[in-house]
Simulated scan of single mutants.
Amino acid sequence: MITNKFKTESFYLELGQLTPDSVNHLAPSFDHLPANPYADGEFRLRRYSRFTFEQGKLNRLPSKDFVQDENINHFQGNVVRHYEEVDDHIVLDPAFIELFEHFQNMASVADGTTIEVHQLRIFADHKSAEVAPEGVHQDGFDRIGIYVMQRHNIEGGNINIHLDKNSPALMSHDFDKGEFVVLNDRKFFHSAQPITPTNDDQGYMDIFVLTANLLH
């Protein structure tokens, strides 16, 4: 018998795709992201919330500022950042819950685990923009899920998975239309290629990122 402990320790990564209906439900919400006052605000808009997911139901946790140690994030490390919450009407949508179902089932994330959610639009206007200004990095969690909801008028933006900080990408893919990867953030590093608009209009890439530390 494979124990849950073995499954948890042996998890590496898994790919998947949301249903088209889910993408259609969630994509319009990215058009209403607020301004970002921090260093990446020139090319990234963001909302941030925390939840637990138990027996198929979401519970929103109290608001909390977001901060990463500078040893993890060399771009905005030790900066205390406050973002507006993910909209209630999105949280109540079954399409949003689908994100958590995949994340929990694929990566052995137990009921009651705190799951942080970043809703991001990375945009490029007349020039290239960094999708991951941190470079090749880890986020400092046990598990992360990267869900690319849509790409509009851009080239580049491939999500790259690396074995270590200095290794070439072992996987690189231009995720789109609800494609996602759930991975063990302790075993792998990740990065992303810059995006460039394909014409004079603004291009953008819309992403949900879920992160969690496992309950021990």
Rank of each mutant, 00 (worst) to 15 (best):
F30C: 10
F30Y: 13
H32A: 14
L33Q: 08
L33E: 13
L33C: 14
L33W: 12
L33P: 03
P34M: 11
P34K: 07
N36Y: 08
P37I: 10
P37A: 12
Y38F: 15
Y38R: 08
Y38K: 09
A39I: 11
A39C: 04
D40P: 08
D40S: 13
D40L: 05
D40K: 02
G41T: 05
E42G: 15
E42F: 14
E42N: 15
E42D: 15
F43R: 09
L45F: 09
L45E: 15
R46Y: 12
R47H: 12
S49A: 15
R50Q: 15
F51L: 11
F51G: 08
T52F: 00
F53N: 06
F53D: 06
F53C: 06
E54I: 09
Q55S: 14
G56R: 06
K57D: 06
K57L: 08
K57E: 13
N59M: 07
N59C: 08
N59D: 10
R60W: 00
R60A: 15
R60L: 13
R60I: 08
P62W: 02
S63G: 09
S63L: 04
K64I: 00
K64H: 14
K64N: 11
D65W: 02
D65Q: 11
F66Y: 15
Q68R: 05
D69T: 08
N71Y: 07
N73L: 03
H74N: 03
H74Q: 10
Q76T: 09
G77K: 02
N78H: 02
N78Q: 04
V79L: 05
V80A: 07
R81A: 01
R81W: 02
H82T: 07
